[in-house]
């Protein structure tokens, strides 16, 4: 119950954040502006609008998670409002989990709104929305859950700017982690290969959630794949949140 009180307050607080509306404005401009690119695409306008809309949901969603999430706990400490919260009969982990759930609510709302706007725009332009498109939006949401958990973790251990830089770097690295297992043959059976493989499994593999090319081209993706990707995201986000709660337990405020 206490967790939900924190979550509710966090949601109300973050939904008023001006950064959110600036980023949503740019996301809207990107989605609606994508049609202009379609004019010179030799009949590929719907595909391009789908591609850019889904990319905008992912990128701007991640930016919202990073900019709002990275300052979430830090701001409470900086403004000393944390004292009024931790002096109440509640565990610190409840505070962290509540903050995460509040931000998750915001991310869910943002993803839903952007997904609905993108879908309506595609339909308005004469395109179709299929199961793969909806699934792609769902997986983007799960990707953002991992990014949000990373942002909350950083918020408990470092300053907002450094945290935002680290989370953004991990966002980029998380999409490029495939390169770690895709080594040239001369690395076979070497320590480098072993280290790279270990890193591959440690770094959050965000490309697992990227079925945007399939969605833009209407290529079906197996539900088994989607299910496992959701399991991966849930476990990874849970782990990050556990570490964030533990880090906050030990923090001197």
């Amino acid at each position: 119950m206490r967790i939900f009180a924190v979550a509710h307050n966090t949601f109300r607080e973050t939904v008023r954040d001006k950064v959110l509306y600036v980023l949503l404005f740019f996301a809207g401009v990107t989605v609606f502006g994508s049609k202009a690119l379609g004019w010179i695409s030799v009949g590929q306008d719907i595909k391009i609008v789908k591609d850019i809309s889904l990319a905008a949901i992912s990128v701007f969603g991640a930016l919202i998670a990073i900019f709002v999430g990275a300052s979430l706990v830090y701001k409470e400490i900086d403004k000393r409002t944390i004292y009024t919260i931790i002096s109440r009969p509640m565990h610190r982990f409840e505070f962290v989990v509540g903050k995460y759930l509040g931000l998750m609510g915001l991310i869910a709302l943002v993803t839903l709104v952007m997904g609905l706007v993108a879908g309506a725009y595609v339909l308005l332009l004469g395109g179709t929305i299929d199961v793969v498109f909806v699934t792609a939006v769902v997986l983007i949401f799960w990707e953002l859950l991992v990014v949000t958990a990373l942002a909350v973790l950083m918020s408990t251990v470092t300053s907002p700017i450094l945290g935002a830089i680290i989370v953004f770097s991990l966002y980029v690295a998380g999409h490029a982690s495939g390169i770690l297992v895709d080594l040239p043959p001369h690395f076979e059976n070497t320590w480098t290969e072993t280290i790279m493989h270990v890193l591959y499994y440690i770094i959050p593999n965000l490309s697992n959630f990227n079925i945007r090319p399939e969605a833009a081209n209407g290529v079906p993706v197996s539900m088994a794949y989607v299910g496992w990707a959701i399991v991966y995201g849930t476990v990874y986000a849970g782990m990050l949140l556990g570490v964030a709660a533990a880090a906050f337990e030990d923090k001197d405020v």
Partner: peptide, 20 residues
């Protein structure tokens, strides 16, 4: 593919426009 932060299909779209 690896270094476009998952935006390779958007890069493909932009390249297609350039190609046209």
């Amino acid at each position: 593919n690896h270094f476009t932060a998952g935006l390779h299909s958007v890069v493909a779209d932009l390249l297609w426009l350039k190609c046209v």
